[in-house]
Amino acid sequence: MNKNRPIRAILTIVAIIVSLLFLLPILWLLASTFRSQNETFASSDPINWSVLWPQHWTLGNIESAINNGFLRNLGNSILVAAVTVIVGLAISAMSAFALAVIPFRGRSATFAIIVLSFLVPFEAIAIPLSQSFSQWGLSNTMLALILPGLGNGLAVFTLRQFFLGVPTSLSEAANLDGAGWARIFWSVYLPLSRPALIGAGLILFLFQWQAYLWPVLVVSNQQLDLAPVAIAKSFGAFTSNYGQVFAETAVLAIIPAIVLLALQRYFVTSVSSTGSKE
């Protein structure tokens, strides 16, 4: 590994520079969280370091976010996202398994339906769907916020692609041992799929983490407002609190990053490193 040291050094430097480019806007967001909005708008021209570094530190934006009940909104978002990820992963992995591993008539047709479903932009059908939800008596419930995130064709698609890559010899061997599909799914495929499950989890998670239009359509009870909705409400008819918006946005950006950082160790676990190759 050590023989390409100079190349590795160069590549590391490239990685650091690219990361910094991606990070800059977020650093600005963080700086704007800890200064007054007047300072934020005053400091961008001409360009200098104070763009990324507050001159007068303040916790005012965070305070005003908390006073506005942002912690509750954040809690709602976390709950909705967590339930969506857990339930969504379970049902998506099950369908993906059926589509990739179980041979049955109608498999391609079912897959086509799944593909079709994620071509439809959710926002375009949100209004008629919200009217159905209200007819079903689901308005203003957590369930109404969670349900649309569960039927996610993209999550099924990505898991199917991964399952197709698992050597069939594994399931055939298990089959010969007399294992049913449920056991093959549970003890052969799932343990191999952590990176893919993390990917599908991201899809399910971000759908809810970013949710804005759907929540405002089906929820009018403030107690149930999700974080992005609360952010939008910071722009009133006679007020605009950018500082608070920046603080809330920064919090929403950082939480998933921490979770993802913690999950990264599972990214190296994969089919190839389990030693069960074809």
Binding site: S130, Q131, S134, Q135, L217, S220, V229, F235
Partner: peptide
């Protein structure tokens, strides 16, 4: 409701039955 999207929310909510 959020000011920016109030009018669109209203149109959905007024036609919804249980709200």
């Amino acid at each position: 409701d959020p000011f920016e999207s109030f009018n669109s929310i209203l149109s959905a909510q007024l036609t919804a039955k249980d709200k």
